[in-house]
């Protein structure tokens, strides 16, 4: 369905935030934090950064927080009672100011969490989250959304897409049913948008590769050990790239609180050396190069084949966050150019 075009003034945007908060919604938006910009729970539009290229972390925390309770349990006199998590008590969330790549990432997360059997907690969180995206008027050398099916003004995944048209006015594209509902609730804050054309306001991001070509190359490269070692020698094997990534979903399950406690799900990363360690001491990925290979293979070869979704939306966060300057775009180009 063609998205409906409206407009909203910057001042009205701030009233919109107040409205959401007064309705009991939590608002997740980019905020200055030292010399960085990162998502945080905000209490007014004044806290929100509107002039950055990308945040350190992705907004995945809205649907996949770094720690969440799966259920709780109580034990007494040899009896155990398991208490299902009350999904109705999950907060309504509005994410404001995420980028089009971040909105697209929700589909990739959904492809993982709902593969075969639906993940109720993830799905319930997603259903209660409204994505009010702001299109990109600037990009940096790490952005490559256009190579993975997105773009600085792409609407896919967003509920509402805002584009800064200058002079304090935003074009508001109402994309989904959830977006229409949000716009309806906002009433007159959204005005008609006569003849607004966003194209000239958007950043240009050159296409760097085709994901099909990458997948085809990777298909042949699993055993190219030397290539992977050369590519990843400086990687120190932390979790930074996975934790800031909007589509990385590896997790751990941990119990806390003793016999009357909670079972928790928390972020994990296939980049950690012990992630795949067997109880026997055998580790199928004992080298960092194997783990780096897994990162690219999983996103660009395995996910497209198994979950019918690319595992990367080209946000460039992993490159920006990497302590040793592993630049994913450069590595993907190297894959595309590798002579097997």
């Amino acid at each position: 369905m063609e998205s409906e075009k409206r407009s909203i003034e910057r001042g009205a945007l701030s009233r919109l935030v107040e409205q959401w908060l007064s309705q009991g919604k939590r608002v997740l938006a980019p905020m200055h934090s030292g010399d960085k910009v990162d998502f945080a729970w905000v209490t007014s539009l004044d806290d929100v950064s509107l002039d950055h290229v990308q945040t350190v972390q992705s907004p995945k925390t809205a649907v996949f927080p770094r720690v969440e309770e799966l259920f709780s349990f109580r034990s007494a006199d040899g009896r155990v009672e398991v208490r299902e998590r009350d999904l109705g008590a999950l907060p309504e969330i509005v994410v404001l100011g995420l980028r089009p790549c971040d909105a697209a990432a929700m589909a990739a997360l959904g492809a993982i969490f709902n593969w075969d059997a639906p993940d109720r907690l993830f799905s319930a969180r997603l259903a209660r989250t409204t994505l009010v995206t702001i299109a990109c008027s600037r990009a940096d050398e790490h952005c490559f959304c256009t190579s993975v099916g997105g773009g600085p003004g792409a609407v896919a995944g967003s509920d509402i897409l805002l584009t800064d048209m200058g002079q304090g006015a935003y074009l508001a594209e109402i994309v989904s049913a959830k977006g229409r509902e949000a716009a309806r609730a906002a009433g007159p804050l959204f005005a008609p948008a006569p003849g607004m054309d966003k194209e000239s306001r958007l950043a240009t991001v050159a296409k760097a590769f085709s994901p099909d070509a990458i997948a085809a190359a990777l298909e042949r490269m699993f055993d190219a050990g030397g290539f992977w070692e050369e590519q990843s020698r400086r990687c120190v094997g932390c979790g930074a790239c996975a934790y800031v990534c909007p589509t990385c979903a590896c997790f751990d399950i941990q119990d806390e609180g003793g016999i009357s406690g909670q079972r928790l799900r928390c972020w994990d990363s296939c980049g950690f050396g012990l992630f795949t360690l067997h109880t026997s001491g055998h580790n199928p990925r004992w080298l960092q190069s194997q783990r780096w290979r897994q990162r690219l293979m999983h996103k660009f070869a395995y996910m497209p084949e198994r979950q019918q979704a690319l595992g990367c939306v080209g946000c460039g966060r992993c490159s920006r966050a990497c302590p040793v300057d592993m630049n994913i775009l450069e590595h993907l180009r190297a894959v595309a150019e590798a002579k097997p």
Binding site: I112, W115, D119, A249, F251, I253, T276, H278, S280, A301
Partner: peptide
């Protein structure tokens, strides 16, 4: 016997090739 956590194809731990 790859290391497992979720058992249901989501946590990523037992991924072996595709």
């Amino acid at each position: 016997e790859n290391r497992m956590k979720c058992g249901v194809g989501k946590c990523g731990r037992c991924n072996t090739g595709k």
